[in-house]
């Protein structure tokens, strides 16, 4: 599978995605008909204010949640109609997640947090190698509580990429970090996208980050309002906010 090097290969194709949350007395329409494509090797930023539906979209792409209507195909496989077991396998072998609050397992060391994923993957990296990739080669035996926020997020990234996923889905990966630390994390993501060719979707509400993307998709009120292609991607080190 070396499609990842060909930019024209479609990884995701989403058509007419809607999502309604039933909150008992109120129904919240988080997505109201979204179409989008993701090409291999591409880095996309989903930009929008909070409540615009970007996390919902990401979760549906990643098989963490299901769409109310519409279809998402991943490499020609319709994941909106997949069974729970198929979705699990999909997440297990193809998708890497990075969350805003890292979601590390506090009782495991950095290395073990990565191993948790590599142990069930098909063709993983060496966990220590993944940690070196994110610049944490010297902190592998630290527990989450002994790491700074930026370091924790890098462990989370190492954990996400260590299984050699086809796509990396990052939900506000810098949301809980100060800007200097955030930039370090973005550098890591950019490097992984460039060196490993992993298609990456990155959610943020921070417009400055959008400049590092190949394409920027603007979401508001559950709809895509605009798509912008960056002719000149900036490197994360050129960003500031």
């Amino acid at each position: 599978m070396n499609e990842s090097t060909h930019k024209e290969t479609i990884v995701f194709q989403a058509r007419g995605i809607t999502k309604v949350y039933d909150m008992g007395e109120v129904k919240v329409r988080a997505l109201r008909g979204v179409d989008m494509d993701l090409y291999s090797g591409e880095l996309i930023v989903l930009l929008g204010p909070s409540g615009s539906g970007k996390s919902t979209l990401l979760n549906i792409l990643g098989g963490l949640d299901t769409a109310t209507t519409g279809h998402v195909t991943y490499r020609e496989q319709d994941i909106t109609r997949a069974l729970d077991k198929e979705l699990t396998d999909y997440r297990r072998f193809h998708v890497g997640f990075v969350f805003q609050f890292y979601n590390l397992i506090p009782s495991l060391t950095a290395l073990e947090n990565v191993s948790v994923v590599t142990e069930i993957a098909k063709n993983p990296m060496d966990p220590a190698e993944a940690l070196r990739l994110v610049g944490l080669g010297d902190r592998i035996d630290h527990f989450p509580a002994q790491l700074s926020g930026g370091e924790q997020q890098r462990v989370a990234i190492a954990r996400a990429v260590a299984k050699n996923p086809a796509v990396l889905l990052c939900d506000e990966p810098t949301g809980a970090l100060d800007s200097a630390t955030g930039i370090i994390v973005l550098q890591v993501l950019e490097r992984i996208n460039r060196e490993l060719g992993t298609a990456t979707v990155l959610i943020t509400h921070n417009a400055d980050i959008a400049d590092m993307a190949d394409r920027v998709i603007y979401l508001s009120d559950g709809l895509i309002s605009r798509v912008r292609r960056n002719e000149h991607k900036k490197s994360p080190s050129e960003l500031h906010w």
Partner: peptide
């Protein structure tokens, strides 16, 4: 519950 969710996000099965 969050750890359970994270493990599921990485592809751990309910059985695991």
């Amino acid at each position: 519950r969050e750890e359970v969710a994270a493990l599921k996000a990485f592809g751990y099965r309910n059985l695991d």
